[in-house]
Amino acid sequence: MKLIRFLLSLSVLVGCVAADICAQTSSSASQTVTFGVHRSTPVVVASAQTSTISVSEMGFERTSPLKITVGSDVRSHVLSEISNVPSQRSFAEYKSSLSAVKSFSIKSSSAEKPVVTLTE
């Protein structure tokens, strides 16, 4: 596909030259480079049956899943498994839109109030 696009641009150029309407001695192409810095600081949520975690501290789009530790039950989850995140969204979609999400909730299914730790 890239080769086709390049060959197409070449053919346009050749046609341009044949028509004697242009001569190029320089050409430019631009790229948009997106960047950011996030200091990896684990977010620890105090005990609560329902915990709300602000992701504003998380800065911007994630490049890897977050590990969630609930109490002593150490499990890794992708964020799409957490409540308050639209379940129909895949992790990839959620990852790309996380910067727009300010907070989400984690609810315990038992009476025990969980200690939730959110890390990179």
Partner: peptide, 11 residues
């Protein structure tokens, strides 16, 4: 911390 930002690089 630097939130997501962008620059345009021209070749």
């Amino acid at each position: 911390q630097i939130n997501a930002d962008a620059r345009v690089v021209t070749l």
